[in-house]
Amino acid sequence: MGRLPLTALQGFVLAARTGNLSSAARRLNLTVSALSHQIRSLEERLGRRVFMRGPRGVELTPHGAHLLELVGPQFEAIERALQQFCAPHADVLTLSVMASVASSWLLPRLPQFVARYPQLQINLQSSVQLVDFDREPVDAAMRFGRGDWKGVHAEHLFDDWLTPIASPGLIARLGRPTLAKLSDWPLLRDPENVWAKWFHTFGGTPPARYVAHFDDSETLHRAAIEGMGVALGRLTMARPLVDAGQLVLLSTHRLRAEYAHYLVYPPRSAEHPALQAFRAWLLDEARRYALAPEHAPAAEGRGRKTSKHGHA
């Protein structure tokens, strides 16, 4: 049957994991055309289609799903074995961060770290997906959650606070609402409907209906900027927008978010010199941020975890 198509199988496994040929090609340092050719060759060898191509990427066919079930674990075992022989570069740190946190909180502060440690290189990866440290060459991550991910160290950085925000244009049209009249305004609902907890904590009646529902914080804040309605904004994301004049804080009340911000890393990264330097700097920045006056308002308390072992 000729040579085994190991390169094509590797490309198939990566494309199956990501559902995207472009992402898989980048990780293999190939062009999308070259990877597509390899997968076509694999399909010709097998006599079966392994992917269905669509506008949003690729999806496994039943034959492809069966092939992934057979060969995927073998490539994962090889990757885990090779990781034991790949020592991290002491002066390079690969960090995964959600884009919203990177743009609103980390990037404005990162130049200070770079100036203090010019010999270190930081590779930032923006993703909302949890990192699988067993499979991905990532040293650490900044994540927003409960801090209970399994198999990793999760160190609490700071809590987040929620408060009503609106655009200057919306306030110019409708005036500035009082706390008692807030439910009369067009309100934007987040995935967990934290408005219900807000009204329960600070008084008032939830509205009969919301103007719109959103499944992520970044889109929610963008809708508030565009004047669609009032959102319960996360201060970490909202503060830069307020400072830029795009949003206005409508209340001095703050509600502690259910989730908090954490630095997460696997045991293999604990002694990584670049991470040790970044961790010390990050914890110091987080302490200063948490002690700022705007983060010590009266709000409903929520117990937080200071350190857990957990996956990010």
Rank of each mutant, 00 (worst) to 15 (best):
L282W: 01
I78M: 13
W195H: 10
V128I: 10
P191V: 06
A8I: 02
S33E: 11
A224C: 12
P186K: 06
L120F: 08
G303H: 11
G204M: 08
T201E: 13
E155G: 04
I122D: 02
S167H: 01
E294Y: 15
P177E: 05
A231D: 06
R304L: 08
L283H: 03
G47E: 07
V230K: 02
R189M: 10
F85Q: 09
D159L: 10
F51V: 01
G203V: 10
L170K: 03
W281V: 07
W195T: 03
P164D: 09
R209D: 09
A260F: 00
S183Q: 15
S100I: 11
Q74H: 11
A196D: 14
A180K: 15
E69T: 13
Y210W: 12
I165R: 03
E218D: 10
A286I: 04
E271A: 06
T236N: 12
L174F: 08
L241R: 10
K308G: 10
A277W: 00
A212Y: 04
L95A: 01
G11H: 03
T7N: 07
V230S: 06
G57Q: 04
L250H: 02
A8C: 01
L46I: 00
P118V: 05
K150N: 11
Q83W: 05
R116W: 05
V242L: 07
A208F: 09
R239M: 10
R49T: 09
R116G: 02
S41C: 06
A15C: 09
G64L: 02
A196Y: 10
I171F: 05
H66W: 13
W185H: 04
V114N: 12
A292Q: 15
Q10R: 15
M228D: 12
Y265A: 01
S100G: 13
A260R: 03
P137F: 01
L4G: 07
L255P: 05
V128Q: 12
P137T: 00
A212F: 05
P73W: 12
E271Q: 08
H37D: 09
A260M: 03
P118K: 04
R17N: 14
P273Q: 01
V71Q: 00
P206G: 13
Q38R: 11
E300N: 15
